[in-house]
Every structure is written in C-alpha cells, then in structure tokens.
Design a protein around this nucleic acid. Structure first.
Lengths: 242, 242
DNA sequence: CGCTTATTTGACCTCGCTCAATCTGGGTGG
DNA sequence: CCACCCAGATTGAGCGAGGTCAAATAAGCG
C-alpha cells in the first residue's frame, strides 16, 4: 500500500470485491483496463436518458445519480452513486438505457469500452460473479427505496435516506464520526425521496428542532443516531455490507 | 417441439435466453438440474423475509410477489412474478434476503440447490451472462416502479401497472387480445402501487367509467389501450423485450 | 343456504402540494 | 473593500389527492 500502488480504480476494486477480494491477477487485469477519465460539473449529464452507450462508467470522485424524467417536468432520482460505484453495468447487457445519469457535484468519471469489459469477464469468471453480486446489491437498495416511497411518510423517507448514506459512506471511509458530506441541494433530496423541495425544507426543519440532525453547508451531522434510525425504520440488511 | 420435449423449465429457458437463445448443450444442462417442485396456495409464503435460503426458485405456474413489511402492518410489493421468472437469483450471491416472497395465486414453484446453479454457471458462462442480464432487466422494472410510486398519481400508477402486465404477459403468450388474467385482489394491487384498497377501488371505478378497462372475475380487459397508455405515461423501453 | 372474504360507497380528515413572497450567503465586478 | 446578484433556503396561506373509519353489498364456497 505504498503511494505508488494508488490507481484510480482502487476504490472500485475494493467495492466490487466485496467479501472475497480479487486475486492479484484479477486486480492487475482490472487496472490494465483502458480508461478514459472525464470531468463533469454539477448538473451535467453523464449518460443521456436516450441513446445507447458503448462504455461503462466508474465513479472516481464526486456524486452522481440515476434518474427518470416525466412530462410534467418532474424527475425521480432512482439511485445515488459515490466513488467506487459502477452505475452503468446495465449497458453491458441492455442496449437502451431506461435512465439518465447526471453529476450532482463536480465529478471525475472513468469510462471503459464494453468490449474490454466483456473480455475481462471472459478471462476472469470471478469478475463476472462480482458483477452479478453488484447488480443484486444495487437492486436491493432500489427495493428499499421503492418501499420507502411507497410506505413511509416524509420524515421516514428522509431519515431513511440519511441513514443509508451514513452507512454507505461509512463503508468507504468517507464519514467523520457522525458527520457526512451532503452535497445535495434540497431540490435533489426532493427528487430522491419524491417530495417537493418546500416539503423537504419543512421536514428538515422538523428534524433540526427535534435535535436529530444538524445540516450546514454541504455537511450533515447526525446528532441522534438512534432517534433518526427509529424514524427511518431502517433495516440495514439490504445494504449487504460485509 | 413434440409434446415429448415439454419440460417444466421450458418457459424459464425461453425467458432467460432472451435475444440469443441457449445452445442445445446449455438447454439440456438446465433441464438436467435436480429440481424439487412444490405447490403453494394463495397468500402462502415461498421465501420468508428473514432466514437464509439455500435454493433458487423458478416459477412454473401462477403468480408470486416479492414484498417488504412495515411495522404499521403495511406491506409493499416490489415485484410481481409470472411463469418463467427466476425471482430469487439474489440468494446465489447474498446470504440474507431483504424481501419475502409469497404466492398470490395457486402456484407451482421449482427449487434448485445453489450448488448446482453455481456449477452450471461455471460450466456454461453464457448462462452466467444470462443471469446478469436478467438481474439488469428486473432492476430496470424496479426502477420503473420506483418512479411510478414517486411521481405518478393513483391513476398513473394503476394504469402503468396494467400496461406493464399487458406487455409482460403478452411476451410469454398469456394474453388473449386485450384480455389478460388478473388474479390480484384489490388489496394486492394496493400493496403494489402503494395506495389503500379503498382508493384502488375508486380509481378502478374511474377507469371503468372512462371506458378504459373492464375488470371482471380474475380477468382484465383493456378497452382503450391508447387511452390507458396515455394515462400511464408508459415508456416500454424499460422492459427490454426482444 | 349460511358464512366468509372481497368489493363498493359515503363522510370526514390530513399530509404534502401549490403558489408566492422573503431571506440568506457566497461569488463577482467595479 | 463593498455593493450587487443570484441560486438556494425559508416561511406563510390555502387547497386537494388520497387516507381513515365505518357500513353496506356482492361474490365464492362448503
């Protein structure tokens, strides 16, 4: 783990490997992938909602989201992605994306041509297995969101989102105690939990008054974890961490 | 395709194969899987929400659903499954299920031990690929549901569900023109689209009055497909059919 | 034909939406 | 260094889609 061993895909390798880490050979094969790195500004499209893609992307830095738009101008964010995530494995198997992806913050994203990914899977079945596992984990997170939208009220939804982020960010070592980065605007939060920005604002105020959280500039501090967790009815099983 | 070629897993093979069907060798390997077939009555649990499973299941007959329960007694259905579906590939990779699965109708379900599935994937990488593809398709369907709950009103949600079912059932040849089986009770519909049974009832009445559908005993007839589709804002891309 | 489960309808209420105005803080140009 | 700007956050007032509760009707089924 000397500084020399740093590679842009390190976080992704760690993330994908999960419980049983990749072998040396597998890791170095991943690191030899021909990647193109691009920078994005907040609100910039990474993958357009229509139009096929020939590359997979890997989040190196910053936050991105998948979303779908509606005629009335509303949009629904269906997942949030942080460094180490591979949010577009779907395009390896399906031609038409059913979602758009955009940056929520400044973001650094690596792109790998599909052909290279397919070859990688062929040569290293364990990587194929890891991709299947990753698909299942992110499907599980999506299910949790689905239930959240379906059956939780405004407080529950926001609390659940915060708890999930706390755990996910903690797993990749981005938290500082109970303080986590929170680069999303209230508008973005609203699109994620399917509320209006106005109501998100009111609910956050409610949380603040109840002493559950403190939300400053781009930083969220969880003041009362048991309390927030109770509001969220969180069952962290679905994250399948560790 | 003589009657002699009928095998309980035929539908699943067709479903999984997708665009590029399996080779003879692959197909016969699948058919040689040691399956246990069990029958379930409506509302009976197939996979419990807690407790690990050591088998994958394949729906042979009937409808099932995945769902999550909440403390207040509510439940959210996160997906519906019809014959040919493999709704529990997740358990191949993740130990703890984050959902329960129950039969919505009388159902015939085949079970295959994980070990045999893993061996199958090892020997036939194309089957591993098919499993990845299947995971992505069902994730896409879940995303569509998620957006539906988040951004559509009661009419939109129900219409969207009906349109999706029409297309999915059509793809496996279960529809008869615009008539499709609809074994779900209004309570089940409510749990799927996150409304109360009462409001589902009112919305169905509204559809009936608008001449969009006819809903009789266990049968749904779509009287005005363009109309229903307009209400649903359906973009069938996400089903990735064909 | 009686019993249970599902559907239907009515009356009332509430959570979250809409619309609109105001406040705030960080960035920018003079 | 300061006045200005502008995106984002905050607050208020009124409304409506969908929820709740309760009762009536209809449909399976032994």
């Amino acid at each position: 783990m000397t500084p020399f061993s740093r590679h842009p895909l390190d976080a992704a390798i760690l993330n994908l490997g999960g419980a049983h880490q990749f072998s040396e050979a597998e890791q170095s094969a991943i690191k030899k992938l021909p990647i193109t790195i691009r920078l994005f500004r907040p609100q910039q499209d990474i993958v357009h909602e229509n139009g096929p893609s020939t590359q997979c992307c890997i989040i190196l830095d910053g936050w991105t989201c998948r979303h779908q738009s509606f005629e009335a101008g509303h949009r629904q964010i269906s997942s949030l992605h942080i460094p180490g995530d591979l949010p577009d494995l779907q395009s390896l198997h399906l031609n038409d994306p059913d979602f758009g992806m955009t940056a929520l913050t400044k973001a650094r994203v690596a792109f790998v041509p599909h052909a290279n990914m397919h070859r990688l899977i062929e040569r290293f079945p364990a990587i194929g297995t890891a991709f299947r596992r990753e698909a299942q984990v992110s499907a599980a997170i999506q299910r949790a969101w689905l239930s959240s939208l379906g059956r939780r009220d405004a407080r529950g939804r926001l609390a659940h989102l915060f708890c999930e982020l706390y755990l996910r960010l903690g797993a990749v070592g981005i938290t500082d105690g109970y303080i986590l980065p929170m680069p999303l605007r209230q508008t973005d939060l609203a699109d994620a939990v399917a509320l209006t920005p106005v109501h998100v604002n009111r609910t956050l105020k409610d949380f603040r008054i109840s002493g559950l959280i403190k939300l400053q500039v781009r930083k969220l501090e969880i003041l009362d974890w048991p309390g927030l967790r109770a509001v969220s009815e969180l069952n962290p099983q679905y994250l399948h961490q560790k």
